[in-house]
Amino acid sequence: MLLEVRDLHVEFTTRDGVAKAVNGVNYSVDEGETLAVLGESGSGKSVTAQAVMGILDTPPGRIAGGRILFKGKDLLKMKEDERRRIRGAEMAMIFQDALSSLNPVLSVGAQLGEMFEIHRGMSRKDSRAKAVELMDRVKIPAARQRVADYPHQFSGGMRQRIMIAMALALEPSLIIADEPTTALDVTVQAQVMDLLAELQRELGMGLILITHDLGVVADVADRIAVMYAGRIVESAPVHAIYRAPAHPYTRGLLDSIPRLDQKGQELYAIKGLPPNLLAIPPGCAFNPRCPMARPVCRTEVPPLAEVAPDRASACFFWKECLGA
């Protein structure tokens, strides 16, 4: 396994108390595999990724427990210096908003080249040549002319390509893409996603794709992990989940996708709001919104249990859910 997250807990200390953002997440990614992590805002998907990358703001954040194994070694036990050498070189991250994730006062060439300066000790001049190569690789036209341009001079799609180029610069074995296409136009989204998928195949990297866009997931992911209130509630190969979800929350998500054959009907929405992380309801966190909830759901936390080979659900009534 390339990356294994085991029973990870992350808390944030706030003025109103301790917010439990991640409550025992388990997932794993293999080389060449794409894992889509799905969930609403606040479900803990980004926080988990930040913990894996080691860029969590501490304080207020705190990793309260668990292990993160990267190529068999526990990242959480490493010294900061050691982790820093891994960041960027062996695992890299693509952020949601490319404009704010690029430094406005440095040219894109300087920022792309920085990767080689940090990890390979290259000179400015050599790193600049590498930057042009990278821009070519992510299909930015006229790379040689544009290498000295500043981020604000590029369109949204081009900027996200630059972010991808930065992440791929040193050919890491793991990429975490945190909603890489959310800030882009629909037409550009597909192009950027295709590029990412293509480069991933080429380099055989593991990809964690964090998203709330089910459309994007269906095209590129191998597996899906659905998160709710800081836990994985369902994990399955992508096609299985689309055919028959084994958790009522997943079902709700799938039902709320607008479909052409439903024209004129009311669009389904999951009732209620995501739970307050300061006060997660007892039992199953989803029970106040769940159409299938029974008394046991309010008292006991359903474990994430295997329901079929390579499939797990954290619902007591997964059978009903599958059959429904």
Binding site: I55, L102, M115, I118
Partner: peptide, 19 residues
Amino acid sequence: DYVQAARALGAGNARILLR
């Protein structure tokens, strides 16, 4: 965000602060 991005790419404190 770009400071966090630089950190994610392995930049150290000195580089992040100065550059």
